[in-house]
């Protein structure tokens, strides 16, 4: 028998090119919103077709890099395979979008309505202990 069954697809280490852009020219990273060309609805994450009108064409819109932390928590008993403690929360952007994300900063330091800004960092590791990079938020100026 061929070893087809044993061959493992490599796990992703970047989450996700549809959602996060890290420009190569050194300018700051940004989240990618998707505006439906048919109805104008703006979404994050990308949904295709558009859940309002089933339009299939979108313009990519760079989203604001700062927002308000709506709520946050520190996790001491986490998902299987994740190192604790870690923090996550909801960030509300001026574009009327809510982003669920991990928070970078000291445990116990996050408060509702804190001003936060986008950053990029490790959210978890693969089964081979490689880091998975994604968007995160941290306190403005931290």
């Amino acid at each position: 028998m061929a070893d087809r069954g044993n061959k493992k697809e490599p796990e992703i280490t970047f989450f996700h090119p549809d959602l996060l852009e890290i420009p190569t020219d050194g300018s700051p990273a940004y989240l990618k919103g998707y505006r439906c060309r048919a109805c104008g609805r703006l979404d994050f994450p990308k949904l295709s077709p558009c859940p309002s009108c089933w339009g299939e064409e979108f313009d990519v819109v760079p989203l604001s890099r700062t927002g308000k932390l709506y709520s946050a928590t520190d996790i001491f008993v986490g998902q299987a395979g994740m190192k604790t403690p870690y923090s996550f929360g909801y960030v509300d952007l001026p574009e009327n979008l809510r982003i669920f994300c991990q928070l970078e900063g000291e445990i116990g330091s996050f408060r509702c309505d804190d001003d936060v800004e986008l950053t990029v960092g490790t959210i978890r590791t693969t089964s081979d202990s490689e880091r998975i990079t994604s968007y995160k938020f941290k306190k403005v100026g931290a």
Binding site: F15, P45, Y70, S71, A72, T73, I75, V77, G78, Q79, M82, Y86, F88, G89, Y90, F100, C101, Q102, C112, I123, R124, S134
Partner: peptide, 19 residues
């Protein structure tokens, strides 16, 4: 997408509690 970023049910309710 939230699970990928570490979501657990305890934490999702904790967010409601904090707010």
């Amino acid at each position: 997408i939230e699970t990928v970023h570490g979501a657990v049910m305890t934490g999702k309710y904790a967010l409601r509690a904090q707010r």
